[in-house]
Design a protein around this nucleic acid. Sequence first.
DNA 1: GGTCGATGTGGGAGCGCTCCCAATGACACG
DNA 2: CGTGTCATTGGGAGCGCTCCCACATCGACC
Lengths: 402, 402
Amino acid sequence: MSIRPALPRTPMKGALVPMSLETIARLAGVSRSTVSRVVNDDPRVRPAVRERVLTVISEQDFHPNAAARSLASRKTRIIGLLIPGAVSFIFSDPYFPTLIQGVTDACNADDLNVMLMMDPSDDPATIDRLYRRVIRGRHIDGLVIGTSMIDDPLVARMRDDRFPTVVIGRCPDEPMLSWVDIDNREAARSVVEHLIAHGHRRIGLIGGPRSVIAAQNRFDGYHDALSAAGIVGDPDMVVDSDFTQAGGAAAMRHLLAVTAGPPDAVFAASDTMAAGAFTVLAEIGARVPNDIALIGFDGLERHLHTYPTLSTMAQPITGLARAAVAMLRRQIDAPDAPPAHHVLPTFLWRRGSCGCSGPAPPGSIRHPPGTATTIDVARYPPSHAEKGGEPVHDHPARPAPV
Amino acid sequence: MSIRPALPRTPMKGALVPMSLETIARLAGVSRSTVSRVVNDDPRVRPAVRERVLTVISEQDFHPNAAARSLASRKTRIIGLLIPGAVSFIFSDPYFPTLIQGVTDACNADDLNVMLMMDPSDDPATIDRLYRRVIRGRHIDGLVIGTSMIDDPLVARMRDDRFPTVVIGRCPDEPMLSWVDIDNREAARSVVEHLIAHGHRRIGLIGGPRSVIAAQNRFDGYHDALSAAGIVGDPDMVVDSDFTQAGGAAAMRHLLAVTAGPPDAVFAASDTMAAGAFTVLAEIGARVPNDIALIGFDGLERHLHTYPTLSTMAQPITGLARAAVAMLRRQIDAPDAPPAHHVLPTFLWRRGSCGCSGPAPPGSIRHPPGTATTIDVARYPPSHAEKGGEPVHDHPARPAPV
DNA sequence: GGTCGATGTGGGAGCGCTCCCAATGACACG
DNA sequence: CGTGTCATTGGGAGCGCTCCCACATCGACC
């Protein structure tokens, strides 16, 4: 195995030839340092010299060696994106793909690179190897964690290592870690409140796995709304599911089979589960929303194409990703700054499946569109805002209780 | 901005302390070289010494610095995974998420890291920056390209740069690039052949974008089957769509509105588009498969939960990913080896939506289960094989015409 | 007892950058 | 004309590894 570059080989058409600052320096008649300054946009270079160097760089199609740069600067310009393997629903739900896309997009804008870390097998030994190799091997400058599980050991590890980390999804037990999130509890509460405003009393909940903090928060919000309305919840109306379409379908069947009678409205804690519920309702010939009303969670564009269109609590997935990257950059630049916590707003899209098709239901809450968070990267509402529905209720950003 | 590590700080509980081969060497009473040998599994170390060094490494929780390693060895142990932004259907279809997962999984097994490259905006300037930064900056050792478009400029660039690259999806015009693929044309042909065996003559096609090579190949296969059966195709029966569910629904509506009459069977070139078609059929009350039979493409597990279950041509997405990583590793180790091309087998799952519900239709082709390709990494059939249907027709791997 | 190979081991010389400091020249001012 | 100041520029010293070569050390063998 020859590792040495094949130097004497005649450089063939376009083939990558190793090139260094020194080469460029010689060709431009300056020193290595000056080329370095030009490459790094250091102002201490005379415009004429800068011009000359830039010309040579562009002629030679030179780009500085990342490894050498990292070694000397102690910065890799790579951030890690960790998607925990424990979440079985990773790719049966477009949440994570959208998140990944949002993160890479934000990084492109900053000339950062993304190292994707995930372990579908969720084997502790693999995770440990991955962790040691990437974090301790200093492959990356910081880490974005896709979604935190309750008692995620990796989260505690990052805190102990004081490694720059931003979690998407709150970490109530880790005040020293930065995170960005939506207010899942409040959002869920207002979904159920909306169903109550439609006159429904027997409201089912198709929830996510309790181990996912966001899912737990949505359970809590559901109960909050029932309590506030003085409704005594039926435990049979609450089904734990798994964020998949199949799981949503199974949960719906379960709700329909409850001895005390089926629900007259259902809140599914994800659009994907709502879609599963939808198919079951179609199968048995139940009319939505007349027989059973339905509201999802996520605000995925694709569910605009069902009939009736799915009402849903939209969360700014791309905004979360952008915010996480921005926060992480800040943390990398100032490692000793205190942790930051941000809450982004959500929107309830009233569409066909909840019974809204024009006039707001009696008693529905209508807030003015909330000003977004102080993080300017959180562009909101989502781009498909204009495609259907109308925001009824939003949760303005606010500092989270730390 | 202090870049220097805060050395004098008392090392707090678990905080990352910079550590080097030299440190370990001193603690173990050996030289830097010996530690390096231990870390790299070089046999030229006495067992006793190795043991001692390993103990110190583990005590100190040491992991060698990736940048220094890369700089000295000229290998980064990172591979790039490029998902072209031009494909709008990236995340509306689980194909890419599954591919990404497959690639990271394969890399974990080899202690390789994955750098995710994608540009949703598909802006040439961004792509160019990304390319220069990552490829020419030598951030990665090699590249897996998710799916090639017809005339993808990036593909030509890789070939010119002689950069280790494997494309998932064939590149007929680039014999010097390695790729792994399925035989889309033949697979599509046998789908349509199967519909013909069911007695259908008026067969619609919901295709993907023509700019995607795989989609084009499926069009060709569709026509092959019609020709072979002596059926004169109706151009109105062929609708170009976009691999999304909404696109599939729109295409189905289009097929239903054709003046010469609706199809009695439809081949959708992806399961996601088939799902869209499904909802339209349900909406108008058409029975599947009695009024209109339907077969999809991809073999996504989620469509096992529809009613009737979706018949589909399954492709080994994870197998493609694994094969690509294996091929890329080989190419990185032996850059001068000739390019490799592999074709993985597909399976037709006969389920409810095509009319198969037990006995094979008259004249259906039944091959013995094909032995998989010579690439041992391609485990096949997919893990959900046991969940429904029965393979009817497989395409054994064969060397591709180069 | 000398020679040879095999087997370990140590240290030097980079890899291609960044950062620091010293040196240079130009210019203004006293 | 001396001196100080500023803007530029060059070169040295690493960053933490890998690789190569030299140098033991130890038997085995003649």
